[in-house]
Structures are given as structure tokens and as C-alpha cells.
Computed example of a mutant assay.
Amino acid sequence: MRAVLTLVTLLVLVGLVALMWWGYRNRRKRQAHLPPFPAAPAELLEKVRAGTAADLLPPSTGVYASTVTDASWQDRVAAGDVGFRSDATAHLLADGVLFDRTGAQPVWIPAESVLDARTAPGIAGKVMGRDGLLVVRWRVGDHEFDTGFRADDKDDYQTWVPALRSLTGGTA
């Protein structure tokens, strides 16, 4: 009897994993029309990692939560690895915003793509409560995205939100 219950439990777990994989695969298919995200310029990435970049604000360490479409704060982008959470350091530069992620590709948001910045209670993959995340609204082509970042020091948001909004030229 115990062997049967163990086998049923394993089958249920394998079935659940298969359903999650199937759902994520279908999400990728639904989002196939999304444009490719901009890549961080190699020379800028080298300067940031060497500590010689001209950051407008001190870098902020924390967790890159995810990037979602403007349709919903739960509509995680499945293209590449931008939908996956990782430790990161956020850099605000005159040319844009760089989320230098540990174990994943950096996420680069050019300054001309930034539409707005705000704090939010959550985004797909991370719910923190009131003002727990820094969220950058940005555009690639005709599509808008929100990228969430949870800073280790929440006081950073008081300087980051206005500084990010200044990248928009006051259009936010």
C-alpha cells in the first residue's frame, strides 16, 4: 500500500511540473511578438563592473524581481531570462538604467525608453507590501514594460524615483 501511495505522489508531482513547463512554454508562444530587449553596451558594462562608470546616484544593491508587460503586474515576460529573479545591482547612468544581475544577463533600459518610475507593493515573483519595490515603466517599440527591483535599502527609492523621472524629460 505504501508503495502505491508513493508512486501516486510522484506521478502527481511529475504531472504538476509538466503543467508548469507547458504553461511557461505557452506564455513564450503568446509573447513571441514582443520586440527584443536592448542589450547593455559592452563598454558601459565593463566600466560599471570596474567601478569607473559615471553613476548619477550611488549603485543600489538588492533583488531584480522581474519584468512584466503593461497588461498586468502578473504578466511576466518569458523571453530570455528577464522574467527570472536574481540578485542585482542597479546603476543609474546618464544613458539609462542598468540592472547588473548575478547569474543572468544584465537588463538595460536606455534613458530614452524610460517613461516613469514609482514604488509598488509587488510585481510577478515578488510581493513586498506598500512601497516595497522600485518599478520602472519603459517602452520598446510599441510595447510597454514594468521592471521591478527590491533594494536592500528602501530609503534609496526616495532618490531613485525622482532621478528616474528626470530621465523622461519631465514627461512622466
Rank of each mutant, 00 (worst) to 15 (best):
L133I: 09
D100P: 10
L16E: 14
G129F: 07
A120K: 12
G103C: 09
R2T: 13
P41T: 09
G80T: 03
A50S: 12
R101W: 03
A90V: 08
L115Q: 06
T168M: 05
D75H: 02
S72C: 15
V68F: 02
P59D: 03
E43H: 11
A117M: 04
T61M: 07
V136L: 11
V63A: 09
R101F: 01
D55H: 09
G141W: 08
T67C: 07
S72H: 13
D95V: 10
R165W: 05
V4K: 14
W73I: 13
A42M: 11
K29A: 14
S60C: 08
A32N: 05
D152K: 14
A79E: 07
L7S: 05
A3S: 09
L98I: 11
V68Y: 01
F99L: 09
F149L: 10
A151E: 11
R137E: 14
T147C: 02
H143E: 13
G80S: 05
V68S: 03
A18R: 15
P36Y: 00
W108A: 00
M1G: 14
L134N: 06
D70Q: 10
S86T: 00
D156I: 09
T61L: 06
W160N: 04
D156H: 15
S86K: 05
E144I: 04
K47G: 00
G122H: 01
A151K: 04
D81Y: 09
T52Y: 15
L7H: 11
Y64R: 03
K29S: 05
L13M: 12
V135E: 06
G141A: 08
A32I: 06
V17W: 11
A111Q: 08
V68E: 00
R25K: 10
G51T: 08
T69Y: 00
W108I: 04
L16Q: 14
A117V: 01
T102P: 00
H143Y: 12
P58Q: 13
A39F: 04
V136C: 03
V107N: 01
D87R: 11
T61D: 12
A94V: 07
G62P: 03
T102R: 09
G51R: 08
R28P: 02
F145I: 03
D116R: 07
R165L: 07
R49V: 02
T171C: 06
T52H: 14
V140K: 02
A50Y: 12
R137C: 10
V48R: 04
M20D: 10
V135G: 02
A120R: 15
M20H: 08
S166M: 07
G83N: 06
